[in-house]
């Protein structure tokens, strides 16, 4: 925030007010402009937030939300006392970290590569193709994964037999040891295309003069990619990284719900799938809300930490 000259504020309120009125006279249009957005956020996002208190109450749909008895942190204690939740939390952390490390950079690399395609028709074709998996639900993707990996009728088996392999084919969908890789790779494959859209939009906003200047300085293709394209994407990458970090604890319910099975559950179960099972069988709104609040709070903490580091390294990149 622009600093208002502090030394004057206490002693001479009139001057402070005068300055403020002056500012408002000049910039009132900006406030008029942002008013609808702020109203929207307040009404549709902040008003329902009293729902978060469900996490601290013993809530049932049959009682009014405001009458439900307060139970303090009981719901959180309940959650953390369950060994199955601890298992889900542990898996959740690992899957989230893998998805962040391997999944976050991939759309950036992909957009840089797409941007290197010279033929504009081919370029458009590639772009359209890579977003396609995003339209197909995980249930359907799983159907295809099953068709590929099935040990009795899958494509892998057919391929292996063609190459002369006899005997059993291990089913990667039931191997505990490697299932986290299946989760991460299929996640990257499905979401990378959509992830390129923001980057490509940012790339197309880059001033072409910069490339010419770099070329004149003797920068080759990869150097241009590094020094011009990637450098220009920096602020976009950072903003998206903050968003991603904030959602860290949401490790992909739809995906894991669709592709996991009981043989790999011990390594695939995450908070959301666990809470889903709780809710399904036990109608635990309060516990589900508590779990959600926990996930969000961790996200918030991670954002603050990231922001702190960002500010230390490079003050411009911090968002707060």
């Amino acid at each position: 925030m622009q600093t208002v000259r502090k030394e004057n504020t206490l002693g001479r309120p009139a001057a402070w007010l005068k300055e403020f009125l002056q500012y408002m006279r000049k910039e009132y249009m900006l406030y008029l402009m942002i008013l609808p957005g702020v109203l929207y956020i307040v009404i549709f996002k902040y008003l329902p937030m009293y729902g978060i208190t469900i996490a601290f109450r013993d809530y049932k749909v049959s009682s009014s939300l405001f009458n439900a008895p307060w139970v303090g942190f009981d719901n959180f204690v309940n959650l953390f006392s369950r060994s199955a939740f601890i298992r889900a939390l542990t898996n959740n952390i690992f899957i989230s970290i893998y998805k962040l490390i391997f999944g976050f950079p991939f759309p950036i690399i992909l957009s840089l590569l797409i941007n290197e395609v010279r033929n504009s028709k081919v370029k458009k074709f590639v772009q359209t193709s890579v977003i396609l998996p995003d339209f197909v639900s995980w249930i359907v993707i799983y159907g295809l994964m099953y068709a590929i990996f099935s040990p009795s009728s899958g494509a892998i088996k057919g391929l292996a037999e063609m190459l002369g392999h006899k005997g059993k084919i291990p089913n990667v969908l039931t191997q505990k040891e490697t299932f986290k890789s299946v989760i991460v790779i299929s996640h990257i494959w499905k979401s990378a295309g959509m992830g390129t859209i923001v980057y490509l939009a940012a790339i197309s906003g880059i001033d072409q003069d910069l490339y010419e200047a770099a070329a004149i300085d003797g920068a080759g293709r990869w150097q241009q990619m590094w020094h011009v394209t990637l450098a220009s994407l920096r602020s976009t990458i950072i903003v998206l990284l903050f968003f991603r970090v904030g959602q860290m604890m949401y490790a992909g319910f739809d995906q894991i719900f669709a592709i996991s099975n009981d043989l790999v559950m011990s390594t695939a179960d995450i908070i959301d799938t666990y809470v889903y099972r709780l809710g399904l069988e036990q109608r635990k709104f309060s516990i589900a809300t508590a779990a959600g609040l926990f996930q969000s709070a961790i996200g918030m903490a991670l954002v603050l930490i990231t922001n702190y580091i960002a500010r230390k390294v490079d003050p411009d990149s911090a968002i707060m």
Partner: peptide, 29 residues
């Protein structure tokens, strides 16, 4: 940069990306 309250409003909006009230309060609203 010159917009006063920019950080406050940004944070307020960013906050809604992390926390939400859930289905039932939204439905009642």
């Amino acid at each position: 940069k010159r917009f006063r309250g920019r950080n406050f409003i940004s944070m307020g909006i960013f906050f809604t990306m992390l926390f939400n009230g859930g289905i039932i309060p939204t439905y009642i609203l």
